[in-house]
Design a protein around this nucleic acid. Structure first.
Lengths: 197, 197, 197, 197
DNA sequence: AATGAATGAGGGTTCATTCAT
DNA sequence: CATGAATGAACCCTCATTCAT
């Protein structure tokens, strides 16, 4: 299963599938739903994808690779442990907001992949978690790093449950709120934001 | 749909169903799976429950009512805003750990309910969220209360993703860690725990 | 399967079942429907009747025996071939109107009985048809007696399709209209009714 | 639900379904019965038809439209009120004999259609009844037209109960017998048949 | 590459009936 | 007698997938 060359039709299929999966859930979505949503024929989709589950796999893999790369980039262009963490959060949240469907599918449908195809996604996930864990570690926090990392992910990923892009709260603002909250807690003053400068 | 009187068989069915739903997901679970898991006959289950979706509904409703009542009780028996929040978190996390299946079903299968049966659950949820929001408000935090509430729920609910009861970390400890993190942030010292020390 | 002694509960069951069968059809009716309609418990009905099909059988048999005896009586108390036929028609139509449910079940659910239980009903039917055929024969009609008999039954039995007891047309009137039509045809004058004297 | 283009497979499915429905009744017939009878696979039938009830609907609609058109044609090509009625009867009876299954399904399974799909069939039926009622009216009969029309339909439709195509009595003969009986009654001489002799 | 047609394998639910109490 | 509980057997329908064209 070598990485396929870029294919516009496939890409559109993945995008649409992500939307439908996000809206109805992976299992309730039928291949006919996807055919209807894409305008492709039922059989036609099988030219691009081996089946329904592979669709999910491809969506999750691509999405994970993209967040990961983006996070790497974001983190690299920041200086100092605090800023690096802030950059990570900002990137994760804005990426989430920009790719709501894919990220919801990633968050909510982990575990909908069976055996063979689960592995690679788990590995990607570990890599991504490790990245954050590293950032936290660099902060010399007294807290348990693993727990802290999962707590932050929970905080952020849960937004697919309540956050709407259309609303008044921009993703950047939301990210900053999360950052503040995460770094200084509920009771600390609102903006010791600037990295001490 | 009056509340049915207590029925041991029904109760056992609900418990088992929660386990199976938690393990395989609501949609992939078949009524035959549940028959096997409970030892009841396929048709026999329909004496207790109108159908698969009602099973989910009953699980979610009961669970929600229980966490809510428990939280109320926990909060009442604590003094001071900080302690009340701590009590809420401790209760939520330990309840979650003690009722992993039900709480996972509650967290993960919101949205698997259709139309008619979705409403009451949404209402229960709102009530519960409001309870937490009230506690946060009482703290006079500079943060946006709503966001702060959702952030905390994300932090806590996400544990169905990674926390194992069997592991070395007790639910109480986990709850305390969350509390510290949430109140004082990642960077504050580990134990300004005691509310007045 | 000796004829059971009279039993009020059974009788009420049969009556109610006839109503429900007439309203929904034999096959779509469930034993639960009948339990609900009678106020008996599901299992309770099996104390009176061997099963759903026996219910149909008993209804049909009783009804057939009743129309037959009534027809016999009606015919006997009339004089002259024409009057005897008129009496048969009047009796059949008024009986039909008074026992709509049972007669609809008889007319519509012939053939819903399987093997064993079909025979006796077929025999009853033959007897009844023979009775009418004899009356027709006595009229010295130039027409084929069998066809004429079936034609008349068709005319009369079809009323479950369109006739409503509640309407303005009384069963007696309807019977007389059928009689006229059947004896003198569509074009003959309306009332050579009185048997010529 | 636009009228579908002609499709040989669908047509064969409808024909076979009509036969099976006629033989066993609509409700007792299972989709598996139909699959077996047609040689199609169970799922395959759903490419042509939305479900069991739609099958019944399509059979009834097509059949009703056909009798109606045929009747119209038959009536138009006859002169004089008597002849037009005779033509209607001859057409109805011969059509019935040629399409026994469909017509039995039409006669016997009225009322097996639910809600949405019942309406159009009822409308078709009304049109057809009106056609006959008009013919009767034109005869200036002293009888009640509506009753006379239903009586005739009863006479004719009842044949699914006793008439066998295989027997010695041809459909044309049967039709003529019905016509005589209906026009001149049981007692009138056998053949004032010829419309102008 | 594209698709209409086809299907095996279930999936949720219902039902007539039985039986222990 | 009466009934709540239980169940085997089906039933209608759906779905992911294949394949001939």
């Amino acid at each position: 299963m070598a990485i396929k060359p870029y294919d516009e039709r496939l890409d559109q299929l993945l995008r649409t599938a992500a939307d439908v999966f996000a809206a109805k859930g992976f299992h309730p979505t039928t291949m006919r739903d996807l055919a209807r949503a894409t305008g492709m024929s039922l059989a036609g989709m099988y030219h691009y994808v081996a089946g329904k589950e592979e669709l999910l796999f491809l969506i999750q893999r691509q999405c994970f690779e993209n967040v990961y790369q983006g996070a790497l980039h974001a983190v690299e262009s920041a200086t100092g442990p605090t800023e690096r963490l802030r950059a990570f959060i900002r990137h994760h949240v804005t990426f989430f907001a920009q790719h709501m469907s894919e990220m919801k599918v990633l968050s909510h449908e982990a575990g909908s992949l069976s055996g063979e195809r689960e592995r690679p996604i788990i590995d990607l996930k570990r890599r991504y978690v490790d990245l954050l864990a590293g950032l936290i570690e660099a902060l010399d926090t007294p807290r348990d790093v693993r727990i802290a990392a999962y707590a932050l992910f929970g905080m952020m990923n849960w937004i697919y449950t309540w956050y709407h892009t259309a609303g008044p709260l921009s993703a950047e603002e939301l990210a900053e709120q999360f950052t503040q909250l995460y770094l200084y807690g509920l009771q600390a003053p609102s903006t010791p934001v600037s990295p001490a400068g």
